[in-house]
């Protein structure tokens, strides 16, 4: 007696209990049926069905509401974040002003201030401007053929930009920004999926790299370096765009404030 065979033949689909009960009854005696218990049981069935339907119908809008609440939450937090950023910017300028005033009081302070204002642009803590280069880098044309995402494509990857930026530093660049994001000594250039992150914020092609530094020296040094060869290879093999343009005046913004590693808030001062 195989369960599956029974199921397929349909022989025993009806509960065998019915046949047994029928056999137990005296021949000719009427079968007991449709009394109150049957009504009660069917009432229970109706109740179960209705409860399930009601429950399912009730849960669907609940899921939708939850989603809307999450979206609302995200918007709220983003707004709060923006507000905090504005506040932080305000406090930073306030602290810079106070620092300026304190340093102005003594000769040593004035000397420190001069040194700071000399070093701050190079450390990306202040805006920087001067003669330099504008470099445009962009993905090459998509490869021909049926498979658009074959490995042989002119897609710029994070390590291409890393190589170029390191080459520029080595060639004597004093300040670099990618798509308006200033690079410090510790700024990360990474990939997240297809996108490239600079300072953990996504940027998209074309990549405009602004460099402050002696344009002639940098171009000569870069052309001779590993980074320059790498970019030229990408250009000739995959058809990426790689243009260098000399500019008499390049403006670089300052980088975001670095995290405080050693300074601690004084409590209860």
């Amino acid at each position: 007696m195989s369960l599956l065979a029974d199921l397929i033949s349909g022989r025993d689909a009806i509960d065998p209990g019915y046949a047994e009960a029928a056999a137990r009854r005296a021949p000719g005696a009427p079968a007991r049926h449709l009394g109150l218990p049957v009504a009660v049981v069917l009432c229970l069935l109706g109740l179960l069905l209705t409860v399930a339907v009601v429950q399912t119908a009730r849960e669907r809008p609940a899921a939708k509401r939850e989603r809307a609440a999450l979206i609302e939450n995200i918007r709220d937090r983003s707004t709060a974040n923006e507000e905090l950023e504005r506040q932080a910017e305000l406090l930073r300028s306030e602290s810079a002003r106070l620092q300026e005033r304190q340093l102005d009081r003594s000769a040593a302070g004035r000397q420190a201030r001069d040194e700071l204002s000399r070093l701050a642009p190079r450390a990306a803590a202040a805006e920087m401007s001067g003669a330099g280069l504008l470099i445009s880098v962009d993905d090459g044309p998509p490869p021909e053929g049926p498979s658009p995402d074959s490995p042989v494509s002119g897609h710029i990857y994070d390590h291409d930009l890393q190589t170029l930026v390191n080459g520029l530093w080595a060639a004597g660049a004093q300040g670099i920004a990618i798509n308006g994001r200033r690079l410090t000594a510790t700024t990360a250039i990474r990939a997240a999926g297809e996108a490239i992150l600079v300072d953990y914020r996504p940027i998209s092609p074309p990549y405009e790299i602004s460099v402050v530094g002696d344009p002639g020296d940098i171009q000569v040094e870069l052309a001779d370096s590993e980074a320059g060869r790498h970019m030229r290879t990408l250009q000739s093999t995959f058809g990426i765009r790689y243009d260098l343009r000399e500019e008499s005046s390049v403006e670089l913004p300052k980088a975001g404030a670095p995290p405080l590693r050693y300074a601690k808030e004084v409590r209860g001062g």
Partner: peptide, 11 residues
């Protein structure tokens, strides 16, 4: 062959 008791118990 319906039987009340069988029905209730099987249900």
């Amino acid at each position: 062959v319906f039987d009340e008791k069988v029905f209730v118990v099987s249900f």
